[in-house]
């Protein structure tokens, strides 16, 4: 398995306008996992989300088709809130505990 040390997160990356599942709010952090194969985007999310305050929202950019299944499934297994998916493909997750 080839898991890079850096998870590819780019907190300073400018983000676009708020999405429908983020009314009037920008994500607190963006994880750029484009080009990464599953399970790497899920691992990046699992590493970063617990480091953020409860209530924080992470935007994950991931173009592996498995991410569309595995990011919501991870949120369900971990009791975190999956806010939605958008073309890009982009996923929003809120830390709830």
């Amino acid at each position: 398995m080839n898991v890079p040390d850096a998870t590819g997160d780019t907190p300073d990356r400018p983000v676009g306008g708020a999405s429908s599942d983020l009314p009037g709010q920008l994500p607190d952090e963006v994880l750029d996992c484009l080009g990464q194969r599953c399970p790497l985007p899920v691992i990046a999310l699992a590493r970063r989300l617990p480091e953020l305050p409860v209530g924080a929202v992470v935007r994950v950019l991931a173009d592996d088709p498995a991410a569309a299944v595995d990011i919501p499934a991870w949120c369900r297994m971990r009791g975190q809130e999956f806010l939605g998916a958008h073309p890009g493909p982009t996923y929003h997750i809120r830390r709830t505990h």
């Binding site: 599953c38 088709p65 498995a66 299944v69 595995d70 499934a73 297994m77």
Partner: peptide, 15 residues
């Protein structure tokens, strides 16, 4: 390189 359409349809972890 796509996950199983069955696991996808069920919404369960595919990796």
């Amino acid at each position: 390189l796509r996950p199983s359409h069955v696991l996808e349809a069920m919404g369960v972890l595919s990796h």
